[in-house]
Design a protein around this nucleic acid. Structure first.
Lengths: 227, 227
DNA sequence: CGGCTACTTGACATCTATCAACCGGGGTGG
DNA sequence: CCACCCCGGTTGATAGATGTCAAGTAGCCG
């Protein structure tokens, strides 16, 4: 999506983080680029680095026995790819499209965080927000029909994307159907069929790498109350 | 379960929390008891208080349109009932059986947390652990069959309970079938049937308010890797 | 232009939800 | 002390939703 390095502006700048802290954080950071499909880290890896997403989209997922996969979240610019405290990654991350991240040496970042209440606070807020998102998703997977899941996904995704790149007719969907399916606990055929059904009812319109959302506001949502 | 006030020992004492901090926390706290079925707080309420569970079990849940309900988690002694930062509760909490909590005035607790890196750290760890649990659950709801869900629930629940009350033949299940169903995204009939099926295979034995787990270790688990 | 990959569509199978009856224990009141 | 009732739980029959398998289409890149 946006080309500019927007990790710092999005996560740290806005609110409670003074110039000195920001300078220190920038000192720790190394920008890295990844191509579509490349893996940033894998579940179980020792977390020597922490990552903040600058631009692009990342899918965070777990692999399960029998070739199943659960996409835990899609990360957008400004998100940490994992909370930088645990010693190991509890999920894998790879690039949906071409993207840029800020890499931090985790030990140093951790030490810095400990000394800076502001940044600690920011991280805590991030963790709380992630927890809320995970619980929304949990609620959706526990109760929603295929259609409710797909609709909730589109609405939530649009809201998150809109915050970063103000306006555009179509909501971009850079991830594959399979990714959406694994995120929603459905099969890709079901996602495809559900899109088709919604399109027939003129609720959405599918376009090459996205969808135009027309009459979605009123749909009874099972999750997505946050903010 | 255990009768003693075990919120402090479980959450704060073990690790990185000095005597002065502990004393300050204890000063802030008021112990309260609840009877089975009573509501501790409701989704949307202003979070004037924070709660730590001393003994008993709490179900944390959201109510949805059309009378649906999602149990987000079961809290055990030592758990916070919510992360004490948000201004409003994002789910409801009520007592599964008779129980005791430590109530904190949230603003004061928050202020204290900000000044104590140790406690902040502890809270951060708690949030990270909760996030991990939520993601485990998400993975389970996204991919597991009814049987996998029930088995994973029993195994995870046993592990958590065992940590608090070392040994007992049967795993206590103080919550209702409906609670388990709403936690696992199933209907209570399905939970009941699945229990029956597992019992026929001698994998478990259902007893009045619990279950004896016999041959579960080997079952292919979709979630529950944590620790 | 050819081949690959993502996506769509169709027919059918399977699993869980739904609706409904029934069982059993604990508590209350006669 | 017993009987009844209520609630939680179990079991059965059936239906509906999503998964599975398979064929076919479209867009992209070499």
């Amino acid at each position: 999506m946006t080309r500019a390095s927007s990790f710092f502006p999005t996560l740290f700048c806005g609110e409670a983080c003074d110039a000195r802290e920001l300078a220190e954080l920038k000192r720790l950071t190394t920008p890295i680029r990844f191509e579509a499909g490349q893996t940033i880290f894998s579940e179980g890896d020792a977390a020597r680095s922490a990552f903040g997403l600058s631009h692009g989209v990342v899918r965070l997922y777990r692999l399960l026995p029998a070739g199943r996969r659960q996409v835990v979240a899609f990360a957008l610019p400004g998100d940490f790819l994992a909370i930088p405290l645990a010693d190991r990654f509890s999920f894998s991350a790879d690039a949906v499209g071409e993207l840029g991240v800020c890499r931090f040496p985790r030990e140093e970042l951790k030490r810095f965080i400990q000394t800076s209440p502001n940044v600690m606070r920011l991280l805590m807020d991030f963790a709380a927000r992630e927890l809320q998102l995970a619980q929304d998703q949990l609620t959706l997977l526990g109760n929603g029909s295929a259609e409710e899941r797909v609709v909730a996904f589109l609405v939530n995704w649009r809201r998150r994307v809109a915050r970063l790149t103000p306006i555009s007719q179509a909501v971009p969907l850079p991830m594959r159907r399979q990714d959406i399916a694994d995120f929603l606990g459905l099969k890709l055929e079901t996602v495809s069929r559900t899109f088709a059904k919604l399109e027939q009812r003129d609720v959405i319109r599918i376009v090459p790498h996205g969808a135009v959302l027309t009459g979605l506001e009123q749909t009874e949502l099972v999750a997505g109350s946050s903010e």
